[in-house]
Nucleic acid binder design. Structure first.
Lengths: 233, 233
DNA sequence: GAATCTATTGGGGGTTTCCCGTAATATTGG
DNA sequence: CCAATATTACGGGAAACCCCCAATAGATTC
């Protein structure tokens, strides 16, 4: 999964970066970041107010693969305060590096999910005392929640992103066969059910995997269910 | 997809209903409703401040199958103001019935999604002039957004729901391995990751299949995601 | 009409999964 | 405490799956 820095795209205007800077100003944050991803499409894209040096380092090192703020937020419904993250190996790695670039480990990430498996993460960080932080968060969390929805909604409906996060369109045959696979049928079974060769079934499963960016059929079934394309058998 | 009225469950406390009533009071709404659904698991459950007569009518007529507020919100990231709904056949049907029970067609629904394909919808309605409504919404939308996340997070992590979605108990090892399978890893990969033999991995997958009553691993992954034991990789 | 996409079937061959065993340790219940 | 059950672990062999290739027919698009 590669990172795409949207600010480097020629056709991309800078309103998102400005938007994030305004968020910082208004809510007394040092930095703000938005990351959008679609596991099914295998994409990550982001806007940040961090310096270019940190952005470069983050991408070069592939820190997005281990970043605990991303991992945790992807599995949460509610906002995640970074103080609640596990202080594991990955945490040490990412935040030690971040510290070198002057980025604090005090922050919050708000996850927003769309209907196609897309996830938007709005993060805000601030270097200050623990007490100060604990007073600040309750006052801004509600607004940040709304802003997170707003920015993710905008990003997902913009042409630039929808081209990148194209949600997979499986053919009716592919969906039909994937649905039978989710129902526990073997390729041979499905072939018998649909009166086609099990070879053909395998072809459709393969194209389904490719479209869903899945390595295996179990993963494809999981993705398809997560997106709502099929139902659990 | 059947509806489950959580308030009728004996072991269910009434804090959600109280919560909704407080939302009404604080934000000057006539009624508030929360609906949680998991298309993957095929369940809908809800709390409402509407009268029992409307609840009964809604369930008897199966209005949830055509309710445009549900349909629209399921596909939206941002809150949906009911004034933006298409005035189609289904709309007429549902809101004509609702009107007979004293429920206005002026409202807003806020969708929240969790990592398992679960969707929470917080709706609030108020009978008032269009102008009044347009002034009210911007003032409360941010708070309602937060509340929607809060209530959905609570419902999804509550024991009540997990008891309703029949829950096989998979061992931590089985869940761990099933999660990796959902992430597209092969048995060999998983064995390497966990430093065990790929044979052992297969045994855990087999017992997972048995517990989930699944014939194949893709089906087991689908079931586990539908139940919320693991998340789509 | 040509190009493109989808659905279909097939061969050959390597890889993975699955079912059959065995067995040590852990946990639970009488 | 001991017995029953569950969990963890490993291996051989058969079955299923997955990937490479090619080929035909129908529908859609340009």
């Amino acid at each position: 999964m590669d990172i795409v820095d949207l600010s480097t795209l020629p056709e991309q205007d800078t309103r998102y970066d400005e938007f994030l800077r305004q968020v910082c100003d208004k809510y007394e944050m040092d930095h703000a970041a938005y990351a959008g991803m679609n596991p099914a499409a295998g994409t990550i894209h982001g806007h940040v107010t961090y310096g270019d040096d940190w952005k470069a380092h983050y991408q070069e090192q592939g820190l997005h693969l281990i970043d605990p703020t991303l991992h945790m937020s992807q599995r949460s419904i509610a906002p995640v305060d970074w103080s609640r993250l596990e202080r594991g190996k990955d945490f040490q790695r990412v935040f030690r590096d971040a510290h070198d670039f002057g980025i604090p480990d005090q922050g919050i990430t708000i996850p927003v999910r769309g209907p196609y498996g897309d996830i938007g993460l709005l993060s805000a960080v601030r270097e200050c005392s623990r007490d100060e932080w604990k007073k600040l968060v309750p006052n801004v969390i509600s607004d940040l929640q709304s802003l997170a929805v707003h920015i993710h909604d905008n990003v997902m409906t913009s042409d630039t992103i929808s081209r990148m996060l194209y949600h997979p369109t499986l053919s009716s045959r592919e969906l039909e066969i994937l649905q039978w696979a989710a129902a526990g049928k073997s390729q041979q079974d499905i072939g018998d059910i649909l009166s086609i060769s099990h070879r053909t079934v395998e072809v459709h499963l393969r194209s389904s995997r490719e479209k869903l960016n899945a390595l295996t059929t179990p993963q494809a079934v999981g993705r398809a269910i997560g997106i709502g394309l099929i139902y659990p058998g």
